[in-house]
Design a protein around this nucleic acid. Structure first.
Lengths: 231, 231
DNA sequence: CCCTTGATTTGAACACGTTCAAGAAAGGCG
DNA sequence: CGCCTTTCTTGAACGTGTTCAAATCAAGGG
């Protein structure tokens, strides 16, 4: 509805007058989120620390939650970069998948304390911040592409139809891992690392087994279900 | 911290003085949630419609979100009742599981419009309302018990260790179904019903296959992982 | 140089969730 | 009945996210 109020987000080389102000506010907000957490960071504090009026922050960002969406888009890029080395090095599916998953958690780590607040808004279906929403389709597709690359760049052999559908399933699994990570209270979120290291061999094994005669019907049935649900 | 302010929630036959006031406020809130949705229902409106002061609502409920927790506990009971007939009638695992899942969605149906707000708070790990939190362990355990009954009351044959761990996994899957349902925009949430009807035969099939020689290692590996993560 | 137009910036004002000091009502006890 | 303690009830006040009419600034055009 009120979408055209702020300058284009995606414009790369734009040098509009307020661009630095926008960046200043964003940087300040991210710093305060890290330092104090999401809930204890007030918009007034962000404005004050950035040296602008509170209304000015709302000129560039529709809401406090939209500040978080910028963070979301940012980690997407970082995730890709962090995963690149492993994807360049490894050829087997398992280490490639593990690399991508670990890279994702690596990137998120500094924000573990306030990631709860982030996922809180993400869970709301009506919110444009939901990872399933249409508004989030760009970063989501980029993330899915990352998992597709982990798969297609590997030596894994699998059914063509499964190869098509798997990246999205892997992304869904990644969302599950992140959800686990958000709730992970262990030191340095070690448990999440264990989850990744434990689940990757399983997935790898199942993908390999999916071509077996006994499992073929199950695979087809599952793929048919996904197809049905997609529309 | 401020836990002892309100009268016992779980007390069944308690006839404390304010019990009717408490119920009045709760009923009013639930009605307004259904009518206007969660966000557009203000605490002032709840208080006014219930004919009490706003502070009085906070005497019985620690926060607006805690009103939702009551709803959570309530649906738990209804779920059990709604699933009872199917569990009494069917003996095969698949229809029993399908029955329990459909019953859960049946009970939730009237609240689909504001269920998003419910899951929003549920996703926050620090919130006592999270289905994974210690505070929610009572309703969670009841829900898991329901899935355990669906399994143990059936004729399904399976590995002892898997039989032990499966109910919790089924509950986790149920959480996934509910998450899908929350995001389900199809008419009458038909898609969710299709998801249930499609996924149940798959689970049933996999449970049966889990005793096969080829799958035995995978099963054990998965169970070991779960055991590791549990502590 | 002044005027116009649009982009930016301001801070007071609003609505909401929540808190709290103060009071009212209900028992219990002599 | 009078007094005390506990339970309940009140509504003003606080802090927060958000809005908005007005002020300021930048850049051209005349």
């Amino acid at each position: 509805m009120t979408e055209q109020s702020a300058p284009t987000t995606a414009a790369g080389g734009s040098t509009a007058r307020g661009e630095q102000t926008r960046q200043l506010i964003l940087d300040t907000a991210m710093r305060l989120f890290r330092e104090r957490g999401y809930a204890r960071t007030t918009m007034r504090a962000v404005a004050q620390e950035a040296g602008v009026a509170v209304g000015n922050a709302y000129y560039y960002f529709d809401s406090k939650e939209h500040l978080v969406q910028e963070f979301y888009a940012g980690t997407q890029r970082e995730h890709r970069e962090a995963a690149a080395p492993v994807l360049a090095r490894e050829r087997d599916f398992a280490p490639r998948l593990a690399g991508v998953l670990h890279a994702g958690i690596d990137v998120l780590s500094p924000y573990h304390a306030f990631a709860g607040a982030f996922f809180k808004t993400a869970a709301e279906p009506t919110s444009p911040l939901s990872p399933f929403s249409a508004e989030s389709s760009a970063p989501r597709d980029m993330s899915i592409a990352l998992f597709r690359e982990a798969l297609t760049g590997s030596t894994a052999k699998l059914d063509a139809e499964l190869r098509e559908a798997l990246p999205e399933l892997l992304w869904l699994g990644y969302m599950g891992v992140v959800l686990y990570w958000v709730h992970d209270r262990s030191d340095g979120q070690v448990k999440t690392r264990q989850l990744i290291d434990g689940v990757v061999p399983l997935v790898d094994r199942l993908v390999g087994l999916s071509r077996l005669r006994v499992l073929r019907p199950v695979t087809r049935q599952a793929l048919a279900l996904i197809h049905t649900l997609r529309h």
